[in-house]
Amino acid sequence: MTERGFIPVRIALLTVSDTRGPEEDRSGDLLAGRIHAAGHHLAARAILRDDRAAIAAQLRAWCEDPQIDVAISTGGTGLTGRDVTVEAHRDVYEKEIDAFATVFTIVSMQKIGTSAVQSRATGGVACGTYLFALPGSSGACRDAWDEILERQLDYRHAPCNFVEILPRLDEHMRRK
């Protein structure tokens, strides 16, 4: 079998927080560092407050940008009243990647036990763009990247990965 070459993807990063600014964005910084270390491009980065409409609007804008392949958010996936990131993501999704939440829970269980039930990490697809909502803790972001996203966003990962089907995510929108 011929060895595949690496294909970098363009990733937008959104931190959702009512309390963190650029100086305190440890989870965003961790993800940005891992994106660069993996050889991908950080195409955009933003911080928004916990506002469902604003989060959904930012995700839609990134989905419509042909220079962005993946959008990852961190924060707002918990159970409190102001945690609305998951709802904002689902407002945008055309298809949900149900197994992402399941695999994230399995990974989290190995690290934090039954406390993993408190996360609502999610993934989906819209307009040919992958979207992932990760918890706001740097440990959860590290786990999601190191155990799931780094591999699935690497074209060399076998037997399959997100990158190899990226060109076909929007095939339903093309003219026949």
Rank of each mutant, 00 (worst) to 15 (best):
G33T: 13
N161M: 06
A101W: 02
H89E: 08
G136R: 00
A44H: 14
I55T: 04
E164S: 01
C141A: 15
L79S: 10
E87H: 10
A126H: 06
E87N: 11
G28P: 02
G33E: 14
F100G: 02
S137V: 01
E150H: 14
G124W: 02
R20K: 09
R10N: 13
C127F: 13
A101G: 15
P66W: 05
P22K: 11
D65G: 07
S108W: 00
V107C: 04
G76L: 02
Y130D: 07
E150C: 12
I112V: 15
A38C: 13
G136H: 00
A38R: 15
V70G: 06
V117R: 01
R4M: 12
G5I: 12
G78I: 15
I55K: 02
D154Q: 05
R120G: 04
V70Q: 08
C141V: 15
F132C: 07
Q67C: 11
T122F: 03
E64V: 10
E164N: 00
A43R: 04
R52L: 07
D143G: 02
R156A: 10
I97R: 05
L149I: 11
F6A: 05
I68H: 05
A53M: 05
D98Q: 12
S73T: 15
Y155G: 06
L30T: 06
K111E: 13
A144L: 06
Q118Y: 11
Q118I: 15
Q118S: 11
E147N: 11
E23R: 07
V103G: 00
P167C: 10
V16I: 15
G75W: 01
Y130G: 14
Y155A: 07
A101V: 03
G5C: 12
A56R: 03
D69N: 14
F100C: 04
T15P: 04
L13P: 11
C160E: 15
I106W: 07
L14D: 07
D146K: 07
C160M: 11
L166T: 08
G33F: 15
L42M: 12
E150V: 14
A38I: 11
D29Y: 08
W62T: 10
G39W: 09
P22W: 07
T74V: 09
T2N: 11
T85N: 10
M109E: 07
E23L: 08
R174Q: 11
D51Y: 02
E23Y: 01
F100A: 03
P135G: 09
A44Y: 09
L149A: 08
A133G: 08
F6E: 07
E23D: 13
S108N: 07
E3L: 08
K176S: 08
S17N: 01
A54R: 02
G81D: 08
T19E: 00
G81E: 12
K95L: 12
A32P: 05
R175L: 09
I7Q: 03
S27A: 11
V70W: 05
C141N: 06
H40E: 09
L169G: 02
C127W: 08
K176F: 03
K95D: 04
D50N: 13
L48N: 03
E171Q: 09
E87Y: 03
T74Y: 02
T2A: 10
K176Q: 06
V125K: 05
R4A: 13
D25R: 01
L13C: 08
G76T: 01
V70A: 06
R151Q: 15
K95I: 10
P135N: 06
R142P: 08
R90C: 10
